[in-house]
Amino acid sequence: MTKNNSSPIKSYENKDGKTLYKFQVYLGVDELTGKARSTTRRGYKTKKEAELALARIKLQVSEGTYKQVSTETYQEVYDLWITQYEKTVEESTFVKTVGYFKNHILPSMGSYRIEKITIAICQKHYNEWASKVKKARTIKSYAKKVLDFAIVHGFIQTNPFTHVETKVKKAFTESAEDENENFYTKEELILFLEKAKVHLNYKAYALFRLIAYTGMRKSEALALTWNDVNFVESEIIINKAIGRGKQTQLYLKTTKTGKPRTIKLDETTLSILKEWNKLQKQQYIQLGINTLKNNQLMFSNTKNDFIQPGQVQKWMYSVQNKYTLKKVTPHGLRHTHCSLLFEAGASIKEVQDRLGHSDVKTTLDIYTHVTKKAKEGAIQKFVSYLEG
């Protein structure tokens, strides 16, 4: 009499020659495709362990509570998510996001099975990112988005990144606060613009004057066209910006808030822009370029295309280096404008509207970095009030 060997439990040898057990179990018919479903489980050390696992799955299938273990990796879920994400953001934002994943997140987590990622694993990688880069919280927020996407699609039930601790105790260090502040005082700004007028070409000088006296972003200034300025009403409309897209190409996009804003210009800045407008026509006609069209860029390169944002910083640093001036970035001129507006007595709402901050918190954060003169003025008011 032959022995019945119909048991679904089968033995096999792994690569180390060790005997393990596996089985295949029927899961019913897939409602979507109408095809039979089954799954194979392996890696059991004993036949008894495999029999218990098989019985457990059969019970879950009969009760309708069985959920097949996901085999998706973080990389595979990311590939699905990034396709959808690209449709929802500006090209420049998309490129920046891909960089976060390529340089930090995917090298750390890409090969993990999505359902095996724990809070401890996420915390470990956040700590690694925090030890290497300043934008660890930003990286963590993007890594979390992929797992949020996995929840929506039923791959996992909870997001372990939700419970990652991002607060760290900062050690006390003696810091030269004034050296690190990225803005000029009133006197420093006047000196910088005086030297910029002498050292730079008129186009670069006009650009720095405009940024310093409007507080607009560098990307917004480089996207301006001459039909954005109203010389009669002394106004300029800021409704676009340049961004860096795929293959590092510059392109036009909306402002950071997505909303246009119209701000007033002072007479001196207007006259400087008029002078540059006249010089631009003279200089560019020698290059064979017609600058009379309505959408002519206010500031363009010698090919009448967008100026590279890095060039603006080179111009600024060349002035600072030549005359040994305080190192401030082009974005620091925006902070300078904000600080001096507060020093001049402008309200928080006025500053928020002029600079185009979507969130008043951004305005208040800059307010905390007002110049030393404003801080000294505050204590003088306090003393005058008490002793007056």
Rank of each mutant, 00 (worst) to 15 (best):
residue 89 V to M: 09
residue 168 V to Y: 04
residue 145 K to Q: 15
residue 193 L to T: 03
residue 253 K to S: 06
residue 39 T to K: 14
residue 191 L to G: 01
residue 92 S to N: 11
residue 333 L to S: 01
residue 192 F to M: 02
residue 21 Y to V: 11
residue 228 D to N: 15
residue 17 G to T: 07
residue 81 W to E: 02
residue 96 K to C: 13
residue 297 L to Y: 12
residue 100 Y to M: 15
residue 185 T to P: 04
residue 94 F to R: 08
residue 63 E to L: 11
residue 343 E to R: 11
residue 57 I to Q: 10
residue 45 K to Q: 11
residue 23 F to N: 13
residue 212 A to P: 08
residue 222 L to V: 10
residue 101 F to K: 09
residue 24 Q to N: 15
residue 109 M to G: 12
residue 356 G to F: 00
residue 8 P to V: 05
residue 66 Y to R: 11
residue 293 K to V: 14
residue 312 V to F: 00
residue 40 T to A: 15
residue 301 N to R: 03
residue 5 N to H: 07
residue 368 T to A: 14
residue 153 H to S: 02
residue 62 S to N: 11
residue 65 T to L: 10
residue 284 Y to K: 07
residue 312 V to Y: 00
residue 212 A to R: 03
residue 150 A to G: 11
residue 83 T to H: 10
residue 33 T to F: 03
residue 37 R to V: 11
residue 93 T to F: 01
residue 50 A to M: 14
residue 177 E to K: 14
residue 261 R to P: 11
residue 266 D to H: 10
residue 134 K to T: 04
residue 311 Q to A: 14
residue 34 G to V: 11
residue 322 K to Q: 12
residue 163 H to D: 06
residue 152 V to S: 03
residue 205 Y to T: 01
residue 387 E to S: 08
residue 198 V to Y: 00
residue 36 A to G: 14
residue 214 T to N: 07
residue 230 N to I: 05
residue 97 T to F: 06
residue 156 I to Y: 04
residue 307 I to S: 05
residue 105 I to D: 13
residue 176 A to H: 05
residue 111 S to G: 07
residue 255 T to D: 06
residue 33 T to W: 04
residue 373 K to D: 06
residue 257 T to E: 07
residue 228 D to P: 09
residue 122 C to L: 07
residue 229 V to W: 05
residue 47 K to T: 09
residue 120 A to T: 06
residue 207 L to Q: 01
residue 57 I to F: 04
residue 47 K to N: 13
residue 24 Q to R: 14
residue 293 K to F: 11
residue 240 K to Y: 12
residue 25 V to H: 06
residue 351 V to N: 12
residue 353 D to W: 02
residue 99 G to D: 12
residue 324 T to H: 09
residue 125 H to V: 00
residue 207 L to W: 00
residue 340 L to R: 01
residue 7 S to P: 12
residue 336 T to D: 00
residue 85 Y to C: 01
residue 187 E to C: 03
residue 318 S to Q: 08
residue 63 E to S: 10
residue 102 K to T: 15
residue 123 Q to C: 03
residue 227 N to K: 12
residue 42 R to F: 10
residue 180 N to F: 05
residue 77 V to T: 05
residue 81 W to R: 02
residue 132 K to W: 03
residue 320 Q to G: 01
residue 77 V to L: 07
residue 6 S to H: 12
residue 330 P to Y: 00
residue 343 E to C: 03
residue 373 K to H: 02
residue 271 S to H: 08
residue 178 D to Y: 06
residue 64 G to E: 13
residue 6 S to R: 13
residue 32 L to H: 08
residue 38 S to T: 11
residue 62 S to F: 13
residue 231 F to I: 07
residue 274 K to M: 08
residue 102 K to P: 13
